[in-house]
């Protein structure tokens, strides 16, 4: 067992009335597994992911339960231990490729940053590693991309750069939060293929979060369906698609665009 989340509840305390956004979230992940979390916006899927990545504020939020990564509870371990895991063991990529890169820094620097924090490599070694990583995510002309600024790249290229910077320390777990949502369909397909390749080659586990069952179906072995902060259904991908147990999952399945004409 690589990641085990037990009875996670997340409560916001920055308003007058505390608001619970995630109730009793449970998740087990084995090494090399790709698990999907599906739900509409506001279902708590991103919150759960942020909690697993240890990125939620410890002050304004109350969290119950446990997030055990390799036996260590991420909710209670020291900040130093948490920082040592972030980026090195757990990588995260977000939805907005426009906002998740620093617009003032060159792409190369941002890809290398994790190495700067987690390794003792020299400048040249870091650059070599970064270029290697950029070509791993199937970017062409890596030297040019290394030297360019985020605004000079397309959305798909930026998302690949994000993947490169998240994967450069070879984390064992990648959390991908809606990473294909704002991309064109052709680019979506390419990014999914890339994730699959990484999974196969380096055995990285992926927690894939999306609102689109159709995308999740393509790469995940197991799917959790979330609604209003609760996991309403969990199962293997085939099981869920062939035999959905709850009404909500059926509704999600129905809303996948089919190759047919819309009738009203």
């Amino acid at each position: 067992m690589m990641l085990q989340v037990k009875d996670l509840s997340i409560e916001f305390h920055d308003h007058l009335v505390p608001e619970t956004v995630v109730y009793d979230f449970d998740l087990q992940m084995e090494p090399g597994e790709i698990v999907g979390i599906v739900g509409e916006s506001g279902s708590g899927k991103s919150m759960s992911a942020l909690a697993i990545a240890g990125l939620l504020s410890r002050k304004d939020m109350r969290k119950k339960g446990q997030i055990l990564y390799a036996g260590k509870d991420l909710l209670t371990c020291s900040r130093k231990e948490l920082r040592a895991l972030q980026g090195k063991e757990i990588g995260m990529v977000f939805q907005e490729p426009m906002h998740s890169l620093n617009p003032l820094r060159k792409v190369g620097w941002q890809v290398e940053e994790a190495l700067l924090l987690h390794s003792d490599l020299t400048k040249e070694e870091r650059k070599e590693k970064a270029l290697q990583m950029l070509s791993m995510v199937e970017l062409k002309d890596t030297e040019r991309i290394y030297r360019s600024y985020p605004h000079e790249l397309s959305g798909g290229q930026r998302q690949r750069v994000m993947l490169a910077s998240a994967l450069i320390c070879h984390p064992k777990l990648l959390i991908a939060d809606e990473i294909t949502t704002s991309l064109d369909v052709t680019v979506q397909a390419a990014i999914l293929k890339l994730l699959q390749r990484f999974n196969k080659e380096s055995g990285i586990s992926i927690l894939f979060i999306s609102h689109d069952l159709n995308v999740v179906k393509k790469i995940c072995q197991r799917i959790l369906v979330m609604q209003k902060g609760r996991v309403v259904e969990e199962g293997t991908t085939e099981g869920l698609f062939e035999n959905p147990k709850t009404e909500y999952t059926r509704e999600l399945l129905d809303s996948i665009p089919k190759i047919r004409k819309l009738t009203v």
Partner: peptide, 13 residues
Amino acid sequence: DVTVQAKVLKLLC
């Protein structure tokens, strides 16, 4: 979201 997409498309239709 996909569920909402379907509804808006139906409205346009």
